[in-house]
Nucleic acid binder design. Structure first.
Lengths: 205, 205
DNA sequence: GTCTATACATCGATAGAC
DNA sequence: GTCTATCGATGTATAGAC
């Protein structure tokens, strides 16, 4: 391959770093050029505009993250195990790459079309019509393994409980002294609390 | 009073509208001036800079929202009722002003110092050292009214479950066909599902 | 393909007349 | 107090030499 694709790869990699930490609006083409070790003009030579470069990079980042996560847990086990596994794997994936939460947040602010398209495509390519967790819960309800809850509502609850600490991380760590969202102890404790809450609630026996 | 303070009030009101919908970075002083019916120069005359104007407006918005919410529910009732009341009032407040969620999100991205300060002050002025819900849960655990959960973890779970639909609104409505976060039916259903989940979980009797 | 230089637009902030 | 005009900085995008 020519020097051509090497440079393109360098640019993509640099763009990932910068966009991930600064967001689309906050990122400067100059920064990306500096990190890539080239100059601004080359960015426009390879990718016509900032928008196009961003779109390409965004889809790649979401694809990598969501793909790795979706393939990390199976849905054909016992529901109880699937649920615990989902929570664990999701929290782990988030704590490994917390910048992605902010990154997707920026996108949602703009309407979230890229993410929605990408996610839908990745679900479809794995045989799901919507968020896989919804289907899993639907099945568990149909088989009478859990009480008849609304699968969409429960899915929103689970995702919200896992995601919120990362979304509000700087805030929570300021308001609740001693709290460290990315701390291993906190995360394993969080995993257990979410699972227990879903499974048995707080009601006394 | 002189025309002086009238203009100032008009500016503040215009700034609230614009900052609320565009965020700090996205807002243009020109937009604010247009909405207020004056010109950019006057903005600098009354408030030295965009930063100062933003800080003033931000604190006002958070103060109004959080103040109204904090005063809308009492903590000295039965825990069960307090919990249900918290969820209801929180969801209602959020659905009435969903732009505030995005607005605070922008602030968190910048570190969230303003919000943390403001919230802490408002908790303190009402006799709480931290998030009131934490204290309420602490008491319920101490009195044996619920099983011994970690109050901080449960609080994060509750807030996450209430807040997440509004944070991810555009995304959820794209990925889950037919879902309308601000729809009354969805919200009352959501309130019940959150409460039931917390109270008894999904485990079969 | 890769560079330098620069055009073009936007925005916050200031100067100065009234 | 309020306006018009403009500065200065920054950022995307392009022209043109090599």
């Amino acid at each position: 391959m020519s020097a051509n694709s090497e440079t393109e790869a360098k640019i993509i990699q640099a763009a990932r770093d910068v966009f991930l930490h600064k967001g689309k609006a906050g990122a400067r083409l100059q920064d990306i050029a500096d990190v890539a070790g080239i100059n601004k003009a080359l960015l426009h030579y390879y990718f016509r505009s900032k928008d196009r470069l961003y779109e390409k990079v965004f889809k790649q980042i979401v694809n990598d993250f969501l793909g790795e996560f979706l393939d990390s847990f199976s849905t054909d086990e016992d529901f109880r195990k699937t649920l615990k596994s989902f929570i664990d794997k999701y929290l782990t994936a988030l704590s490994k790459r917390p910048e992605i939460v902010r990154f997707v947040m920026w996108e949602i602010k703009e309407g979230g079309v890229f993410f929605a398209e990408q996610a839908h495509g990745m679900f479809a390519s794995r045989g799901f019509e919507t968020i896989p967790l919804i289907s899993v819960i639907q099945k568990a309800v149909a088989e009478g393994r859990i009480r008849p809850v609304d699968p969409v509502q429960l899915t929103i609850s689970i995702i919200g409980m896992c995601l919120y600490p990362f979304i509000a991380q700087p805030l929570l760590e300021k308001i609740i002294p001693g709290l460290e969202v990315q701390n291993d102890d906190f995360l394993s404790q969080r995993s257990n609390e979410i699972f227990d809450l879903i499974w048995q609630g707080v009601g006394v026996a």
